[in-house]
């Protein structure tokens, strides 16, 4: 039986799942709730500080991981969800979703490199 190449996508899906489950909620808590409700100083999210963070190589890497992995996770999750809902045009759906994730990945890289 032929060995599957699914691990390429599934590896990104699994990694993205970990990030989405453990890191994304904390980010939402900080950027979406704590700062707007003044639980953390608004200065923490000031343009200068965030720009400095995104300019730092480690900051770039962290931002890349928390953006690109969940993007691939979402793409694969939506593909499976479409299948589970009985949409059987698997290949076109997969192409559209994975191309979207790939474009998002490239845009993230180029935006971070310009910082």
């Amino acid at each position: 039986m032929a060995k599957s190449h699914k691990p390429i996508i599934w590896g990104l899906f699994a990694g993205g799942g970990m990030v989405s489950a453990f890191v994304t909620p904390v980010m939402i808590l900080i950027t979406g709730l704590a700062v707007p409700f003044h639980l953390i100083s608004r200065e923490a999210m000031s343009y200068d500080r965030v720009h400095a963070f995104a300019s730092n190589p480690i900051g770039k890497l962290l931002l890349f991981v928390v953006i690109f992995l969940p993007a691939w996770h979402a793409a694969h999750r939506l593909r499976i969800t479409a299948h589970d809902f009985g949409l059987r045009q698997d290949i076109p759906i997969a192409v559209v979703l994975y191309v979207t994730a790939a474009v998002g990945t490239i845009m993230t890289i180029s935006a971070l490199l310009k910082m």
Partner: peptide
């Protein structure tokens, strides 16, 4: 793994 790691193996599961 020749069976489990094939298309018809674990990769056909959508984790319902």
């Amino acid at each position: 793994q020749e069976v489990s790691a094939s298309h018809e193996g674990v990769w056909e599961c959508s984790f319902v």
